[in-house]
Structure formats: C-alpha cells, structure tokens
Write a protein that binds this DNA or RNA. Structure first.
Ligand SMILES: [Mn+2]
Ligand SMILES: [Mn+2]
Ligand SMILES: [Zn+2]
Ligand SMILES: [Zn+2]
Lengths: 147, 147
DNA sequence: CTTGATGTTTAGAATGATTCTAATTCTGTA
DNA sequence: TACAGAATTAGAATCATTCTAAACATCAAG
C-alpha cells in the first residue's frame, strides 16, 4: 500500500508547491501510510528512526507541516493531547475510544455533511467541518493468542 | 443574566459534589456568564482580577476545572490553541471565524445529533459528539461609529 | 567541474499553556 | 477557640511544539 503510486503523489504534490522530495519527507509519509493509527510526531519519530537513525524530531515536525500543507495528511487534535496525523483524505470523522485511547476513522457520507452544514444560520460559510466522537468502540479480536 | 438563579445553580452543583462555594468560583463563573465569548483561562484571569485583584491564575484554572467537573461549563479546544470555556449547556457546535478568531455557538437540533450518531458502524457507542466549523461568519454591525 | 543561492535538516534553546508543589489561608465543625 | 480538611496562592516543572543558527544538500549557472 505504499509504493510508486503514493510515492509519486508525494513527489508531485511537493513539486506543485515548489518543494523538494527528500528521504525524510518520503519516510515520514511512508510511515504514516503503513500504520494508519493516527500517530503523534513522537511516535512517527521512533518509527522513522529505525530506517533513518539520524533523523531529528524537528525534521519530523517539519515534514509533517509540509505534508499537511500539501494536503496529503490531516492534523487531528483531541482535547489537549499531542497532535495526531492521518493520511486518510476522504471526508471522515474521528472516534476516540475512551478505554484504549485509540482513534478510529468514521466515513462520512456527503449527505451527512450537507445536513450538518444546513444547521448554520444565514451568513455563515464553513470551509471545514470537523466531527469528533468519544466513547467505546467494538473490541477488535486479538488476531491470535500466542502459546 | 447573572444573579440568583445562576448563583444558586452554582452553589447547588458544588454542594452536590461536596465542594465549597467560594468567591473565586463564583466570580469565575459569573465572568463566564457575563460575556459569552468563549474566553481562555488567561482572559478570565484578567476579567476576574478587576473584582478580586488577589486571585491567581492557578486558581482560575482550578475553578474552571471544578466548573467543568460540575457540568456547569464546557471546555472547548480548537487545534492547538489555549482551551476556551463556554457556559452554554445546550447541545451546540462551535464556529470559528477564520478572520476574527471569534468562536460562535451554533445550536444543534436533537434530530441532527441523531443523524450524526447514525453514521457510526455497529458496535460503536458514543458518549459525546463534538462538531467544529471553520469559516466566515456574518459580520455583526459595529454598534455605533464614534465621532 | 566550481560556485553560489536556496532549500533542508539538525541539535538544542525558547515558548506557552497547563499542571504540580508546598506553603498559607479559610471554613465548618467539635 | 482549635483543628481538620478544603481551597488558594506563587512559583517551579512539564511537555508538545516552534524557533534559531549552523551544517548539509541540491540545483543552476558560469
Ligand atoms: Mn504532535
Ligand atoms: Mn486555557
Ligand atoms: Zn483519520
Ligand atoms: Zn459554546
């Protein structure tokens, strides 16, 4: 799920913004695509360091800022916690599981977005709508219990 | 809009939680009710200091935590900005004006909340839904241009 | 190829909202 | 009045993030 298509998309978007394609940017984006669990900058730092041990946390922040700016990644905030990052570009909401702390994507049909938008009184024009749920999500079964 | 009714509500809620009614708590809550512009803790600190110059910022934070805990006030977070506080207990969304930075309340009919809730796949149970709009809101007219 | 301009990365310092700590002050009751 | 627990206070600590300044890399001339 990583390869050429995404890799090209990245190079393309960077070029569109007059930015260079670098190993750091590629690896941060790749790490984000590989495990779609809404990691924080710190978590990505750890993951990317195994491939590029010299990368710095500042660079991870810089790359993420760039990716968000290129519209390849969304920044997700929940209460006062560290910002999380999401490569899902479809319209979706976030569900925060109170028990596990996990963040799940919830697809949002366009019709719902219209309904939500319709509650705005006259004169309001929204450029974005963010929806966040909190609660309990179905426990995914342990994929295999070892010995 | 401040007086006995709200004042009693505060005393009552505090008592319910085994907490004391103090001048600091009263003033912070009053300041929140008086100007419903979703102030930050710092802004409330400034406002309350004119009535009680000895109050500390830590106390403002403590009082807000207490008020949130008593369900008299909602904490509102937007991206990485400082937490804002809202005494509107009705179900409502927040609209952040990109130009002015102001935060406005948007009433949410129960029917919409149901619709939103309905997008959750089976097994998800939400205990709260938060909706945040960004965009442009109607300019309220300057109430009188001086000179 | 050099060279310079510019973009990028890096380590570490700085920032800023919030929380914590420890001491002091209050309040309600014995 | 005296004490226990609650609340307030000033200032230190925390922590995610941003900033700074220096080192590096890359590209486009010359
Ligand atoms: Mn973060
Ligand atoms: Mn705040
Ligand atoms: Zn997401
Ligand atoms: Zn509000």
């Amino acid at each position: 799920m990583i390869t050429t298509e995404n890799s090209d998309a990245l190079a393309q978007r960077l070029a569109d913004s007059g930015l260079r394609s670098t190993p750091q940017r590629g690896l941060v984006y790749e790490a984000l695509l590989k495990t779609r669990d809404h990691p924080t900058a710190d978590e990505l730092y750890v993951r990317v360091k195994s491939d590029l041990p010299t990368i710095s946390l500042a660079t991870v922040y810089n790359c993420l800022e760039t990716l968000v700016h290129c519209h390849l990644v969304r920044a997700v905030n929940f209460e006062r916690g560290p910002t999380r990052y999401c490569p899902n570009l479809q319209p979706h909401a976030h569900f925060h599981d109170d028990d596990t702390g996990e963040t799940h994507d919830i697809d949002l049909p366009a019709s719902l977005l219209h309904q939500v938008n319709a509650v705005l009184p006259g004169g309001y024009h929204s450029s974005s709508i963010e929806i966040i749920f909190r609660g309990k999500s179905p426990h995914r079964r342990a994929s295999a219990t070892k010995a």
